[in-house]
Amino acid sequence: MMIDDETLIAFLDGELDEAEMERIAVAIDADPALTDRLERLQLSDQAVRETYQPIAEEAVPDHLIAAVRQADRDTAPDSETVLPFQRPTGDRPSRPAWQAYGAIAASLVIGVLIGSRFGLTEPAPLHFEGDRLLAGGVLATALDRQAAGAVGEGDTHVQLSFATDAGGYCRAFQQGGTAGLACREDGRWVVELTAPVPAGSNGPIRTASTALPTILLEAVDARIAGETLDAEAEAAAIENGWSGDPD
């Protein structure tokens, strides 16, 4: 039986209907020349697959991941209205080594001292209560009231807001070189994660449109129900105190 190469290759790819697959299988069994052709094709197919497969197993270069995060932020409709997030004034290191909660707390306190009406009496922006890290002070105020995309008191910037599968709310925030994820629980903001923001594809001036760390976006993705809140839904959530909880 004559079987053309297109059919033979479609057979190899499992792209024929059941009856046709069966017919070709029988023909191959009965014809050594056909078996030989099939084996040769299989051999070269396998060589091609094995040549390229390792590429998909390599670590993806950082700059390609950054291209997804970064280009996306750059084309966000509000990116032009976002204020510089941290000006290179020289009186603070532009990229401190944020290693501990103490560092972010200190930085937030600087924000309080610069722009606050409350001075030193303002509660700490981060504090432990039992085994949970809670937002307080300017951070809690920003999480309570600030729309995503705006820069508020203490340079705290809320990047995005979303509802969780459990019916609660979480918000991703950024302050200088540190980003974090806070989720609403019992009328308070529990800070579930903080992570350093990837070093600057934006140059020396950090803007609010800086890409969020991968680990944080993964955490968002693990919790999010549907899409991020749009401006309207977010405004409603702010109005309702993030759960309808009158706190």
Binding site: Y52, A56, E57, V60, L64, L212, T214, V220
Partner: peptide, 25 residues
Amino acid sequence: GKRSARLENEMIEYLPRMRRFARSL
């Protein structure tokens, strides 16, 4: 389509395959 963390993550998930396809080209 619209921008979201989920979409970005999906794109990043495809990068290994996109690199493989690019290398075959």
